[in-house]
């Protein structure tokens, strides 16, 4: 592998990682800033979609296209299935408890 190629690859990995960290960070900010349980559940799914997605992308690039990549992608598939289920469970619990969604102008809770 030429030096240029290595440099490009490292750069791409860094960009992907930075993106993943950024979106995870934004998601954490969202959990703090958003006003109620429903709204927070929205942003939690962000971590797992773009956050984890970009990091897995970085893993793929790091390993090159080898068997570990398959596992990384499988990981992503499972996250994509389990994450909405968990978010849904949390939101549904709130709904069943009768918690009213926050609307504009109300107190944060």
């Amino acid at each position: 592998m030429s030096e240029l190629e290595l440099g490009l690859r490292t750069g791409a990995i860094l960009v992907l990682l930075a993106g993943g960290v950024f979106f995870t960070f934004v998601s954490a900010v969202g959990v703090i800033r958003l006003p109620d349980v429903y709204a927070r559940a929205h942003t939690a799914s962000q971590t797992d979609t773009l956050g984890a997605g970009l990091v897995v992308g970085a893993v793929v690039l790091t390993y090159g296209f080898e068997t570990e990549v398959i596992k990384a992608v499988l990981l992503l598939v499972f996250i994509f299935i389990t994450n909405p289920t968990a978010a849904h469970a949390a939101a549904r619990a709130a709904y069943v408890e009768g918690i009213e969604p926050w609307t504009e102008g109300e107190e944060r809770r």
Partner: peptide
Amino acid sequence: TLTPGTLTVR
């Protein structure tokens, strides 16, 4: 639910 901004509650 996967799409941020919409969340299936029930």
